[in-house]
Design a binder for these strands. Sequence first.
RNA 1: GGUCGGUUGGCCGAGUGGUUAGGCAGCGGUCUGCAAAACCGUGUACGGCGGUUCGAAUCCGCCACUGACCUCCA
Length: 491
Amino acid sequence: MIQEIQIYNTLTRKKEVFTPLVPGKVGLYVCGPTVYGPPHLGHARSAITFDLIFRFLKQIGYKVRYVRNITDVGHLVADADEGEDKIEQQAKLDELEPMEVVQIYTNLFHKAMDMLNVESPSIEPHASGHIIEQIEEVKKILDSGYGYESNGSVYFDVEKFASENEYGKLSGRKIEDLISNTRVLDGQIEKHSGLDFAIWKKAQPEHIMRWPSPWSDGFPGWHIECTAMSTKYLGETFDIHGGGMDLTFPHHEAEMAQAQAAHGKPAVRYWMHNNMITLNGQKMGKSLGNAISLEQFFSGNHPLLEKSYSPMTIRFFMLQAHYRSTLDFSNEALQASEKGLERLMNAVAKIESLPVSDSSTLNIAELTANCYAAMSDDMNSPIAIASLFEGVKFINSISDGKSTITSEDRDALKSLFHAFVFDIFGLNAEDQNESGSNEVLNEVVDLLMKLRTEAKANKDWATSDKIRNELAAIGFEIKDGKEGVSWELKK
RNA sequence: GGUCGGUUGGCCGAGUGGUUAGGCAGCGGUCUGCAAAACCGUGUACGGCGGUUCGAAUCCGCCACUGACCUCCA
């Protein structure tokens, strides 16, 4: 079942045939969230992108170990390395223990991921749970000569590394440009060069998050956690490393250098980066203060949102764009996705009851091949979705009596749609809002429907329209179909 | 300033040297007591100016606009 696929490797800037290190198995590492704030649309894009990759690789027969970390230590909040740990900063604001903050936002993240139907990774390691492994990596880097200790902190010697290895290749940077562009920051006296980055940082007295190490009581530098955890769970060399495009520099560049320094060989074979979500053409991000949280999307509680958007709408919206393109948020675009998704899901539900004939007027095998070909070409979900809509048109046409399908093809079509819609794209039928669980409400509305149907039978249009219009005003949508009346409570 | 991208029809968004992306909206139709919903049909776009070519939206050059990274960031 395993077929040839191509993926775009940021390192080489082109699509490459994907060949795993170990046949049939894939090691995938993705930078997860820093849990100091509520999850926003950007987190969803990354999570959904790599969820798609995870799901597709499994679908075509690979055994995948997917590691996505939780960053809960180490980020510095200020320009200088003297700054407080970001998580600690938030903790002080909230008057909570740092790990309490971590727990709160980790839970929120998990909840949002569940709602978006993002599968759990195989392993979700916390940086704080791998301090020992990180210290070991720091030791290896010191042993290899690419690190130096300075006043209790340990730094990575970028210029030395660059003189003997490639540095800047991933992000397309030249070391000379970096040197001339680096800002001179306070507290840099400890470093030999402004390019150097901390791999272990001595904690200031007031710093709460701290661990003992051979150099000082402190905390690990940001970049080292991914090297330590990917090495532990996937090995010194593994297949795919993913993350948001904004992480390519300096984070991933530093990771590449560190791993090379520590292990004497490159760690990552394919680098994959998802692009950003934009809002009015500008990147949506926590640091820009324009991030809309996922909770706000689900509830519609944000000035920029005209209405609430379900998790599946968000998911489908993202799948309709290629992961390497920026995706611009707008109410109009989201509403278009919402309707498209509804049409897709309605068609899926219809397949089973489609009437069969002696012949098919659409080539299902070809449709199937197109879908897999699209995904095999660097996870081109929008193309695959376009093919699926070809199938939707066909399905509706059959139920309209204008096209035909054989029993065999109907089974194939059903398999195709189930594989793509549910397994690969991870879309699921939405619950029929809260009304679905409210039996009494259902019965009351059904009663009104019955009264309206009776009024219609008596040609008492005044009464039937009154029932329909007043229910509509409350938010109910009344659908008169050939098989009878149905209704839905729209938010 | 440096580096790398982007500019596609009303909106979102694929793609590509010559052939319909797709979704949404709009329009027309079917259905309906009328609607709504649903379904069917329908659009002919590729920033500007040059160049290469039998042929470019797709390749090259210049220009304009815009974005990302260069600091934490998905």
